[in-house]
Write a protein that binds this DNA or RNA. Structure first.
Length: 258
DNA sequence: TCACGTGTTACCCC
DNA sequence: CGGGGTAACACGTG
């Protein structure tokens, strides 16, 4: 699931419990810990409180009165609040206990995980290679980012070092809404197309952040892309699909001509 | 059994 | 160096 909108939802969950003392840290599966031991995670966080968490791209950053917790959810991670007596899920990997309940980092595939850095300086270094967060990009900045970029539009949109936060679903959704083929070469895009892409990005992000996910509505590409013979929600053309840089890309060859 | 998946990184090639 | 492609990581599903 996790692209920018999902992580923004997880940020909200954590934000609701900022300021409450962390009473316990339980590592159920150390396989998600990145560069930190279970012991160190516990020592650094127990008795501390999370400050206001923030998000950059697909990263959730939670300062904890000194150390900084950094979560990345890979393809299957999530963060949710539960009563302490609610049975744990099989894929709950790390749990932070509070007075009234607990936060659970759940992740089936363990492709990414939980980091802890000593301070904000190190947090900044961890995020150093990321481009600006997609929600912070202006029309002018998008144009500047794409200027001088070679290769396909799809690759550019999902390149976290260019723009942070857009994943496979969002990138396809944005191209579809903008009526621009994801196969187009970036240098060939004209100003109107970049403007259309920018407006599509804003609208898709706004609605997705509101939903906490890319909503699988039947008026969106995402609602049709997983069906074997999925049809374009706008014109009914059978959707095209093809792998680009290892990810399945879906588009409508009628609405988004090459 | 095999292919596939909303992510990232290492590695090879041009 | 910039891009393209693939494999690997881990695990569940069709």
């Amino acid at each position: 699931m996790p692209e920018l909108p999902d992580v923004e939802g997880f940020r909200r969950v954590l934000a609701e419990h900022a300021g409450e003392p962390i009473t316990a840290v339980r590592v159920c599966d150390a396989g998600v810990l990145r560069g930190v031991s279970a012991r160190r995670l516990d020592e650094a966080l127990r008795g501390h409180r999370f400050g206001q968490p923030r998000r950059h791209g697909k990263w959730l950053i939670a300062p904890a009165d000194g150390p900084v917790l950094m979560l990345h959810f890979g393809m299957t991670g999530s963060l949710s609040w539960h009563d302490a007596d609610e049975p744990r899920h099989r894929h709950d990997r790390v749990v932070w206990g509070f007075q009234d309940g607990e936060l659970r980092f759940r992740d089936m595939r363990k492709l990414q995980g939980v980091r802890l850095v000593a301070d904000e300086g190190q947090a900044g270094r961890t995020l150093d290679d990321l481009g600006p967060d997609a929600l912070d990009v202006s029309r002018e900045e998008l144009g500047a980012l794409l200027a001088g970029r070679r290769g396909r539009l799809k690759s550019a949109l999902t390149d976290q070092t260019l723009i942070a936060g857009l994943g496979n679903l969002l990138a396809d959704e944005i191209c579809w809404r903008a009526r621009v083929s994801p196969l187009r070469n970036v240098p060939d895009l004209d100003d109107d197309e970049v403007t259309a892409l920018y407006q599509a990005m804003r609208r898709v992000l706004r609605d997705s952040v509101r939903a906490g996910r890319v909503p699988p509505r039947d008026t969106w590409l995402t609602g049709a892309r997983d069906e074997p013979e999925g049809a374009c929600p706008r014109c009914g053309t059978t959707l095209s699909r093809r792998r680009i840089s290892g990810r399945t890309t879906v588009w409508c060859r009628t609405c988004q001509p090459k």
